[in-house]
Design a protein around this nucleic acid. Structure first.
Lengths: 126, 126
DNA sequence: CAAACTGCATTAGTACACTAATGCATGGAG
DNA sequence: CTCCATGCATTAGTGTACTAATGCAGTTTG
């Protein structure tokens, strides 16, 4: 795993992102145990708390499950389905982003429009 | 204009977002002058620097143009075209988001997938 | 020129996100 | 039970984004 401490992207997020991708790619399979906080921390040379934060992030997303005193495991719950949904979303977004760039929109504008659309949607639902 | 100082969204961004929308909605027309820093600041009870920050944001997006000592104006440059592109993007995103929600993806996951797609796209281009 | 308006630059204070150091609590192996 | 592994909680330090206070610089109008 590659971590860039100088990046503006927080370390815990870099870890969470790469782990999430690894799980979706099948590197870690459902039910499998993930590296312990301390072991993982030593491996990639960060503080155990930072690993913990990454695991927490993935737990909130339902991707992993924690058993205190034992370890952190890849969740058995419909990972494959989530994978399919997320891949579908990713594919759709790729197309939309490419078209937007072609239309001359800057990344900032695309991001803003996305956030605007998200907020609007959530406001409607809630 | 409604500003919520307690919001987690920075004040300058709230202002920029609402101004951008107003311009796209035709409330401020191309070439028209916007309120001065100080006047605007008094109106919505924030510091002039915060208004400045909002104007800077819109200037970087090409939506407004600044003439020092004079004022800030709605850019003459192809606002209508940008408007159309952005509306097109917004419409596409609305569809994608609705489908993603229907597929059971949470807002957090959708946001993450979007950011992932954006970074990937930018990385390719750069 | 001078006054009165513009936007801009510098500096400082505040809040918060991030990371790390350290110790506590839980669970399994012997 | 005891040991050693696990994850969790608390606290503190650091950097950075945001906001505000204040003064500087440019432009117009009389």
């Amino acid at each position: 795993m590659l971590i860039d401490p100088k990046s503006s992207i927080p370390i815990f997020r870099q870890i969470a992102d790469q782990l999430r991708q690894s799980i979706f790619d099948g590197v870690f399979k459902a039910g499998e145990i993930l590296p312990s906080l301390r072991q993982f921390a030593v491996d990639i040379k960060v503080n155990p708390n930072t690993i913990q934060r990454a695991y927490e992030t993935l737990e909130r997303e339902g991707i992993v499950e924690t058993r205190r005193g034992v370890g952190v495991f890849v969740a058995n719950s419909s990972i494959a389905k989530l994978n399919a949904s997320q891949k579908k979303l990713k594919s759709a977004l790729d197309g939309v982003i490419a078209q937007a760039v072609k239309d001359g929109l800057t990344p900032d504008k695309i991001r803003h429009t996305f956030e605007f659309a998200m907020r609007e949607y959530l406001a409607e639902v809630v």
